[in-house]
Design a protein around this nucleic acid. Sequence first.
DNA 1: CAGTGGTCTAGACCACACG
DNA 2: GTGTGGTCTAGACCACTGA
Lengths: 237, 237
Amino acid sequence: MSNFPFQRLQIDLAALIDRTSPGQRLPSEPDLAKQLGVSRATLRDAMRTFETQGLIRRRQGSGTFVVGKVQALDSGLEVLESLETMAKRFGLEISVSNLSVERVAADQNTAENLNLALGAPVLSVRRVIRTDGRPVAYLADTLPVDVLPLSDLPIEFHGSVLDLLLGRGDPLKTSRANISAIGATADVAKALEIQRGDVLLHFYSQLFDERGKVVDYSLSYFIPGYFNFHVVRRVGG
Amino acid sequence: MSNFPFQRLQIDLAALIDRTSPGQRLPSEPDLAKQLGVSRATLRDAMRTFETQGLIRRRQGSGTFVVGKVQALDSGLEVLESLETMAKRFGLEISVSNLSVERVAADQNTAENLNLALGAPVLSVRRVIRTDGRPVAYLADTLPVDVLPLSDLPIEFHGSVLDLLLGRGDPLKTSRANISAIGATADVAKALEIQRGDVLLHFYSQLFDERGKVVDYSLSYFIPGYFNFHVVRRVGG
DNA sequence: CAGTGGTCTAGACCACACG
DNA sequence: GTGTGGTCTAGACCACTGA
């Protein structure tokens, strides 16, 4: 037995995944652990790295499946557009699930980011974006109710606040997106059907209208591999 | 004992960290596990989430320490600048370690990204950026040797390829940065003194000159919390 | 050297999916 | 019910730090 179980495991697992057709199930964790001569904990640790890369997908109760390559959407960040619009440009089917629209009171953080008083009424819109049946992004928008009252929502609202505002002709100007990487918290992990701590690309952004007022504050979480964001940077100050 | 050890643990740990002064050491893992009534494995899992947030720092052989809040550098992505330049703008001290400069043959990936033949000679420059003694970023640049021969490096090269090229007056134009989130691989984790799988913000970018030639291909890895990158997005296509 | 965090094991129980 | 992945435990050994 090697002195570096983890490295050897990664190699063995990579080979196994490689020779397994997309959609097929891998052996169960106890079986695999026995086959590969490691404990289940170590096996799971190695499997997590492959799940992060999007090569496998684990589902409690049913098994671990090999995932086929998916088309990634590559988009520049210079122009703000909804994921729906972006997908349409690429001819990719996406769907929305877990849509939740609530009228709530602004907490500390929300109030600060929207320039509102603590406890001011805001509309909270949350949704999960899926392609190919898999969750790939979790989006949470928060707006002052005077920008978008609950009553202004169309019956068939599919979730994109941006598209709604644009369709209404609101005088929007820019969005400022802060970019970071985080581990999934318990609630986001559940919505995205991934594990707590899994790697996510995270945007936190504010949407401004022409007068400089913040009309929307949003948190976006992306599972790596499905969306490629890029930005073209000018050289020199 | 609660049915949700992990959630309770997070609360208890947060409280412990909160009442411990920055720089102080926490009790050892076996001790803490006993105090909090969980196994060491579970404790470590919870601790990982706090380390990801930059609240604690674990060092093999010496212990786990509470980290004070650090100043984050907030920078827009519209203009390409070196981390050194960025830090100078903010008056923050940074240092470089693990500087490595090598002349190597282009592998498949490098060749594609630099538009070179497989095996063409390239210069590989890697370095770790530190502030406050802590590694915060790992940067790897690769350039064709005809852009930057080893012999052109100044004696006191501190690591920024971009600043070197700009200082020489090279006709650079734009950089295209692809943004993603990844878990640290073993080698990057070692350089950044973090754990394998820890969350990192990752840029992979190509630097173009005025004629559209790729003069540099770079991989950047950032520990979240030390740098804030943002981008201003225009509304409407 | 003793003590720390890093890794791994073997086994247990749970929540969930699916027939 | 049966089998899956998700969580947790108790204990072992290793690699590293620092007195």
